[in-house]
Simulated scan of single mutants.
Amino acid sequence: MRSLWTAATGMRSQQFNIDTISNNLSNVNTTSYKAQRAEFKDLFYTTLKRANVLDEQERPVNLEVGHGVMPAATRKDFKPGSFVETNGTFDLAIDGDGFFGVLLPNDEIRYTRDGSFKLSVDYDEGMLVTSEGYIVLDEDDNEIFIESGITDITIDELGYITGADEDGEPVDLGRIKIVEFTNPEGLLSEGSNLYSQTVASGEEIPIDAEEMRGRIVQGYLESSNVQVVDEMVKMITAQRAYEISSKAIQTSDEMLQLINNLKR
């Protein structure tokens, strides 16, 4: 019976939906995490009779039956999360569109909205890095160094880093790399709050200070944009849809059993 396989696709799809929802809920406290939404599309149809309005027996609609559903995509919601005050010197949040650029040990660039940066000290010099030790890049794709003795470090809304030397004179330490993408939803999630560019996302578009539509906020971190209540409602809906699909399989099995018993 076609209904057995059709209902099975519904169960598989709702299982995928639950997997997506559970991932959102597990990352409710992850810095800068963006909630995902599972999207589905119906499978192909078998047309038993086609619409025909050219002869005497006009049939205005088709007679067709579908074969179920399949996951089509997972879409990220890049709506910004709320800001959490940390008062950390190197804790940064992007108020608006954009991503920070970081350099991996294999010299590949990745992108993140997680601005919980740290200072990696080597002898008398410090370097701005992520929690995993990945290098935070400046607008020229170079490392950001902070020499010992530099105090009163501030990062303004445009991403410029300044400090004061031992004599109290201002020191320019560079500007953090900020980029955007034509289609950020096309970015590939790699874990550790990192994204990589793809053909779908397009290449990175550096944001110059004069062109910034958002701002950098020092001493704050962007929280996850997952709405727990919404995710719970989605979970209940997915669970009920899963139960209905399983009920359709049970009903089809009972119908097959009745057919088999006709011979007796």
Score class of each variant (00 low, 15 high):
4 L>Y: 05
4 L>D: 02
7 A>Q: 01
8 A>R: 00
13 S>C: 01
15 Q>P: 00
15 Q>M: 09
17 N>F: 05
18 I>G: 02
20 T>V: 15
20 T>N: 15
22 S>L: 05
23 N>T: 11
23 N>W: 07
23 N>H: 09
28 V>P: 08
29 N>Y: 07
29 N>L: 07
32 S>D: 03
36 Q>S: 15
41 K>M: 02
44 F>A: 02
48 L>W: 03
49 K>F: 12
50 R>N: 12
56 E>G: 11
58 E>V: 15
58 E>T: 14
60 P>D: 07
62 N>M: 02
62 N>D: 14
63 L>K: 09
65 V>M: 11
70 M>I: 00
72 A>K: 00
75 R>F: 03
76 K>D: 06
80 P>G: 05
82 S>E: 14
83 F>E: 10
86 T>V: 13
94 I>M: 08
97 D>P: 01
98 G>F: 14
99 F>P: 03
101 G>S: 14
103 L>E: 09
106 N>V: 08
107 D>R: 08
110 R>E: 06
110 R>S: 10
110 R>M: 08
111 Y>C: 02
112 T>W: 03
114 D>P: 06
116 S>M: 12
120 S>Q: 12
121 V>I: 13
122 D>A: 13
126 G>T: 09
130 T>Y: 05
131 S>N: 15
133 G>K: 09
135 I>M: 13
136 V>I: 15
138 D>F: 10
138 D>T: 06
140 D>T: 14
143 E>D: 09
143 E>I: 00
144 I>R: 03
144 I>Y: 05
144 I>S: 02
147 E>R: 10
147 E>T: 11
149 G>Y: 06
151 T>N: 15
152 D>L: 11
153 I>M: 00
154 T>S: 09
154 T>M: 06
156 D>V: 07
156 D>A: 11
160 Y>A: 08
160 Y>N: 11
161 I>Q: 01
163 G>V: 03
167 D>K: 13
169 E>W: 06
169 E>T: 13
174 G>Y: 03
175 R>V: 09
180 E>W: 04
182 T>C: 04
185 E>D: 14
191 G>I: 04
195 Y>S: 07
196 S>E: 05
196 S>T: 08
197 Q>L: 12
197 Q>P: 07
200 A>D: 10
203 E>G: 15
203 E>P: 12
206 P>T: 07
211 E>K: 13
216 I>M: 13
218 Q>D: 09
219 G>L: 13
224 S>E: 04
224 S>C: 02
229 V>G: 00
231 E>Q: 14
231 E>R: 05
231 E>S: 12
235 M>L: 14
236 I>Y: 04
245 S>T: 04
245 S>Y: 06
248 A>D: 01
249 I>P: 08
251 T>M: 13
253 D>M: 10
263 K>M: 10
